[in-house]
Nucleic acid binder design. Structure first.
Lengths: 242, 242
DNA sequence: CGCGCTGCTATACGGTTGTACAATAGCAGC
DNA sequence: GCTGCTATTGTACAACCGTATAGCAGCGCG
């Protein structure tokens, strides 16, 4: 009994690495358990650590979630951008690779979608999470604007307004990703890529009138119908639910 | 004291109307409290009813949620379709009115988005909710396919494959609706309508190659690049997170 | 080797959750 | 008007939640 294998009850770690470990444990929990994963006890168990530690390292649990949100979001964006930039080829090709990365199997994990749902559902409650969303959404849009800007400088591509174009493309990507994550049987990832490629094609063909640079606002967006008499003055409520 | 205003402690109701009232109370709770709204106590309080009643009328709380999901989803779809069909005009105009209804103020309520997040987050756990999603998504896609089919029969519009077109349009609508619900300041509803109108315009211009009727699958979707050598055999993981 | 800083654990607390079940009472039918 | 069916209530229960806090213990430093 002289040389007992007395394993230490816990190991100390620098605050930085412990915080990082907690963030990774949080992401693992959200991925595995979805909305039930953001519990100090569950995250602590995942990290092999006492529940009280997370409130010791983070002012509150929502701060931890917000940090995890920013970490994951930026990591994904960098991975996708890196994948798109890998081959040195035309902007059009880079955009296509961006789509491919967006619908790669790793991105279509249902656990990842559930993670995102948790982030989204916290936006309306927590100001920190909302700030992270605004930052990361801006970063995604900036990435798309960069790719689209390179595309615009390609010969034969008509000029278009970058910001609304990026908004539309981002929405298309998000919408396809959402449905693909919910029900993988609706369409194959390659179909999603093809639909995004179609969008690129239409953009290059100048088929999006409201994106023309001289189009100031959306009021003149439709172009042809200047007279919009707002026909039904008696506003029929679109949402009859109480 | 002879004529006491003795209010009955509760009122009996037929099972049907009580279930309906509980469904409406559920929707109100989800709208107000988001994910914290699906508690028997909160729903019961909203309906002015004891918590035990909901487990008495519904086998479980997830069944109630699934029913509420289907009710709200179909109600919204019918409202939007009704709004689109109101004027008897061109298919193109009906499609535009569909977009307008989609981004009407009532649909951009943050509470509605939070409600949807709850539904979405239950899909991976509950088979009933998943079935409701599959049904309602199919209904939405069918509605879009109907509108797009009418558009296709218009003179001057090239033929296109209905199903992937509806999938793409649905994704665009959903993606724009999501971001508009999260952050109303990113773009105005009219801009979203304009971007959808752009999509319609491109479709009518035949600017979506993969939607051409002869295009069989997504493998030939990109059209031009037949040789796709899958360049990087060492698959760099897109998601480096553990 | 031992001191001491502090990362970390363990527990307690008041609150919430879903489910179960016995008791109550509205109200319809006779 | 009384009776009986059953919708409804109220409570009990065990499990979980986030936070606060007192004290243990790893481990660097002297």
């Amino acid at each position: 009994m002289a040389k007992e294998q007395q394993t230490p009850k816990f190991r100390r770690a620098a605050a930085t690495v412990r915080r990082e470990a907690l963030i990774e444990a949080t992401l693992a929990c959200l991925r595995k358990y979805g909305h039930d994963g953001l519990s100090v006890r569950r995250i602590g168990a995942e990290a092999g650590v006492s529940p009280g530690l997370i409130t010791h390292h983070f002012p509150s649990v929502s701060t931890l979630i917000a940090t995890a949100y920013e970490t994951l979001s930026m990591s994904l964006l960098h991975s996708i951008e890196h994948h798109a930039r890998e081959v040195d080829s035309s902007p059009r090709e880079r955009l296509r690779r961006f789509y491919e990365a967006w619908f790669a199997p790793a991105l279509l994990d249902p656990g990842l979608f559930n993670t995102w749902l948790v982030f989204w559902s916290m936006i309306s409650h927590d100001a920190g999470v909302r700030a992270v969303h605004d930052r990361t959404y801006a970063a995604y849009r900036a990435a798309l604007e960069s790719l689209l800007g390179q595309l615009q400088r390609t010969g034969g591509v008509p000029a278009f307004r970058l910001r609304p174009a990026a908004i539309a493309l981002s929405a298309l990507l998000d919408g396809l990703w959402t449905e693909a994550s919910i029900n993988p049987r609706t369409f194959k990832p390659a179909e999603a890529v093809a639909l995004c490629e179609d969008w690129t094609h239409a953009l290059c063909a100048g088929a999006f009138p409201s994106l023309h640079p001289d189009t100031g606002g959306p009021s003149r967006a439709s172009g042809r119908r200047q007279r919009r008499p707002r026909p039904q003055n008696r506003r029929r409520p679109v949402l009859p639910i109480a």
